[in-house]
């Protein structure tokens, strides 16, 4: 493993553990929905059932299988998170490259845009946007993408400015290469590792945000399950059947925690 060579020996176990948990979560979310019963089927004759062979993690207040909802919810949350992160990275890197390379007016405009976006707490802006265009997948993903890109943009711009002033880039320009060619071949390659690490950490944050929005009821339309929404739905029954809340909450925590396990040593290794 080439990547492992960059991680200090002391944190290799940590990264491996995180990666293992993440892979398991991803695998469960991908395969799980095919193995469990339909997550939306209600069975009002067996509400709040204890865990059994039929309901692996019991059933909720409408008699739906919690296990099925958990894996399906994971698939939804992870997929939406992926969309958000990809969207944010694409926008951020693209604008950051432009900003750093061309400078001047373009740079100033994009950076003010970044300032404006960053001056709002991300989740608040997401709430506002989601509130304006209504809930649903597009609203949540769109809102979190719009609030998520500035980080990537700033780091891309900083690296671009740094690399731009190196002699070999100047030599490339004088050798007749176009700006687009240099951005692609000389600068993008320097940005990639930084962005990859930032995206790993961003992944965890976005899952948290998506769950928060789900918890507040701005997520996928019910009965489609989602981790945040599951917590909100089951909160009234916390005393009676605590695992209804604990299961999705644990899923969110473990996933976010594993992203941190993987991301932090990588970020630290890159800083050196």
């Amino acid at each position: 493993m080439k990547v492992m060579a960059y991680i200090p020996e002391s944190s290799r176990l940590q990264v491996a553990t995180g990666a293992f948990i993440l892979l398991s979560v991803a695998l469960l979310s991908m395969i799980g929905p095919h193995l469990t019963p339909d997550p939306s089927t209600q069975n009002l004759s067996s509400v709040f059932a204890d865990p059994s062979s039929e309901y692996l993690l019991g059933s909720d207040h409408l008699g739906r299988s919690v296990a099925a909802r958990l894996v399906r919810g994971g698939a939804n949350s992870l997929f939406n998170t992926l969309l958000c992160v990809i969207g944010s990275v694409l926008i951020g890197v693209f604008l950051g490259l432009f900003s750093g390379w061309y400078g001047g007016f373009i740079d100033a405009t994009i950076m003010r845009l970044v300032d404006i976006t960053m001056s709002f707490p991300g989740i608040l802006l997401a709430l506002l946007i989601a509130g304006l265009i209504g809930g649903g997948q597009i609203a949540v993903v769109g809102a979190l993408t719009i609030t998520g890109w500035p980080d990537y943009c700033r780091i891309t711009r900083a690296i671009t400015q740094n690399v731009k002033s190196r002699p070999y880039v100047e030599a490339g320009v004088l050798a007749g290469f176009s700006g687009r060619f240099i951005l692609r071949k000389y600068i993008f390659i320097e940005i990639l590792p930084q962005i990859a690490v930032l995206a790993t950490l961003g992944f965890g944050r976005t899952i948290l945000n998506i769950s928060s929005l789900g918890f507040l009821g701005i997520g996928l339309a019910p009965p489609e399950p989602e981790w945040g929404a599951m917590i909100a739905e089951s909160l009234p029954y916390l005393r009676q059947s605590p695992y209804l809340v604990l299961a999705p909450a644990a899923a969110v925590s473990i996933t976010v925690f594993s992203f941190l396990l993987v991301g932090q040593p990588l970020a630290r290794a890159l800083k050196k």
Binding site: Y168, A171, G176, I189
Partner: peptide, 24 residues
Amino acid sequence: RRKLWGRRMFLLPQEPRLALNPTM
């Protein structure tokens, strides 16, 4: 100017090691 660079004239950079792309 850019149409001339590399196509009509070429500036041989001063520091060979710095002028080459270290990632290629």
